[in-house]
């Protein structure tokens, strides 16, 4: 019964198509009782569940990917959601996990729309930052206590909320305008490195110079400071980057 119900409720073509598909698959249809209002027919009763399933999950995806929904438009986003839910049905009790594979899926489902895939990556980073485990920030005192001779071997733990992305600047601009409830402005060209993280319960983002992004990514991988700095010109304002990252609360551990 449960397999039949799931097959019908989640069918891409809706409940009626789901009933036909379930029959073709050999799933036995349960006997639905004829009780209650006569106008509320059996097919309509099943359709209540099918409609509720899709609307609920589409709204969850639309909540996590609001800018993508805005970019694609309501109908195209609905089609994308249908296709995604068919390809990647929810495998976790928590709806927080539902849209985790959508950026990859968008890349395959909309091969001509690289903007949409990049926008989805950015929105997933925001969701990850929002949901990441809470960690105390590294205090200035903890950093000041490190003897200078030890710094080359120090590994700085980067917070679990921190996500580094390389994206078209136009995607960042579109997302920024959408979050502000504004019409998209004249978009920049080229790529930017974007850091997304959470501090004081707020998801924040900051564009980084490309070498700053490389350095932060190496620290994120757990490299000691000396190796993380390998190959970066000494003329770069590395001290200023570290001061900014510490103030932004990106560091959570010192090893």
């Amino acid at each position: 019964m449960q397999r039949w119900f799931a097959a019908v409720v989640t069918h891409r073509g809706g409940a009626a198509a789901g009933v036909r598909a379930a029959a073709r698959s050999g799933l036995a249809a349960p006997a639905i009782a004829a009780v209650g209002p006569t106008g509320f027919r059996r097919a309509a009763r099943v359709r209540v569940y099918a409609d509720a399933w899709f609307v609920r999950l589409r709204e969850v995806l639309g909540g996590d990917y609001g800018a993508l929904r805005s970019w694609l438009g309501e109908r195209a986003f609905g089609r994308l959601a249908r296709a995604y839910l068919a390809a990647r049905p929810s495998r976790h009790p928590n709806l927080n996990c539902l849209g985790a594979a959508l950026p990859l899926f968008v890349g395959r489902a909309l091969p001509g729309d690289a903007f949409a895939a990049a926008l989805a990556r950015l929105e997933l980073a925001v969701t990850h930052a929002f949901d990441a485990a809470a960690e105390p920030e590294l205090s200035p005192d903890a950093l000041a206590s490190v003897p200078p001779a030890r710094w080359p071997r120090v590994r700085l733990g980067v917070g679990a909320s921190v996500r580094l992305l390389r994206l078209p600047a136009a995607v960042v601009d579109y997302h920024t305008a959408w979050r502000a409830g504004e019409a998209p402005r004249g978009a920049r060209v080229g790529q930017v490195t974007l850091c997304v993280w959470r501090q004081d319960d707020q998801v924040r983002q900051r564009e980084l110079a490309r070498p700053a992004g490389q350095l932060l990514r190496r620290l994120q991988r757990g490299l000691p400071l000396r190796r993380a700095l390998d190959g970066l010109p000494t003329s770069l304002p590395i001290d200023a980057w570290f001061a900014q990252w510490r103030a932004d609360g990106l560091f959570t551990a010192l090893r």
Binding site: Q2, R3, F5, A6, V9, T10, Y49, A52, W53, R56, L57, V60, P89, S90, R91, H92, P93, L95
Partner: peptide, 11 residues
């Protein structure tokens, strides 16, 4: 849920 697929509805 059935067969590991969560339907997120009270069925």
């Amino acid at each position: 849920a059935v067969d590991g697929v969560h339907l997120h509805d009270l069925l």
